[in-house]
């Protein structure tokens, strides 16, 4: 037997990548070839986007920072989906804001919903924000009827020295079908 050459090592390396990497990716391709009898070119998928800044943190709304609600008010802050829902039954007791989002378009399931609450002092200055997150996990069961109304409660964040006296609410994330 000849000793392994660098080329042979390279071939072994390629084979290893095929075995290991292919276990995840090419398995999928085999699904295609199982049905199509063909092989596919994986390089077609665009997986990087130069210039696109990777997001950090959770979604916020610029309008929360610009809102200055008066004491006692619970107001809506502008967001990208304001034509798709109504805020109902809003209430604020100084410790938490509660209410409901009634989705008004094409509801068979509310897949994702996030409500951001800005809390303000008596001068209308923003003290901090809280968040309600709804994510529907599709486990194959639909034991309840489609629901247009999603109720939420968002507590005033801890550590705020000045009492919060007003709230602005906005929806940066809404996906329903």
């Amino acid at each position: 037997m000849k000793p392994r050459t660098p080329r042979a090592i390279a071939l072994v390396a390629i084979a290893a990548v095929l075995i290991v990497g292919g276990g995840a990716y090419a398995l999928a391709a085999s699904g295609a070839s199982g049905s199509s009898g063909g092989s596919i070119s994986a390089g077609a998928a665009r997986t990087t986007f130069p210039g696109l800044v990777a997001p950090s943190g959770q979604p916020e709304l610029e309008s929360i920072g610009k809102a200055h609600p008066r004491p006692g008010e619970v107001v809506q802050a502008a967001g990208p989906f304001d034509d798709r829902f109504l805020l109902e039954n809003l209430a604020f007791d100084g410790a938490a804001v509660s209410g409901a989002v009634r989705v008004t378009s094409d509801v068979s399931a509310v897949l994702d919903l996030e409500v951001v609450a800005g809390f303000y002092d008596d001068t209308g200055a923003l003290l901090g924000t809280g968040r309600f997150v709804h994510h529907l996990v599709d486990d194959g069961s639909h034991s309840v009827a489609p629901e247009e109304l999603v109720t939420f409660t968002i507590a005033v964040p801890s550590g705020i020295a000045v009492p919060a006296v007003s709230v602005a609410l906005g929806v940066p994330v809404l996906v329903n079908e």
């Binding site: 290991v20 990497g21 292919g22 990716y25 092989s39 994986a42």
Partner: peptide, 22 residues
């Protein structure tokens, strides 16, 4: 975890194998 960590290598590998198909 295996799937998520090997996808790039697999993409490269499969591209090697199927290059020229088209």
């Amino acid at each position: 975890v295996l799937a998520s960590t090997t996808v790039v290598a697999a993409l490269l590998a499969t591209a090697v194998v199927t290059a020229g198909t088209v």
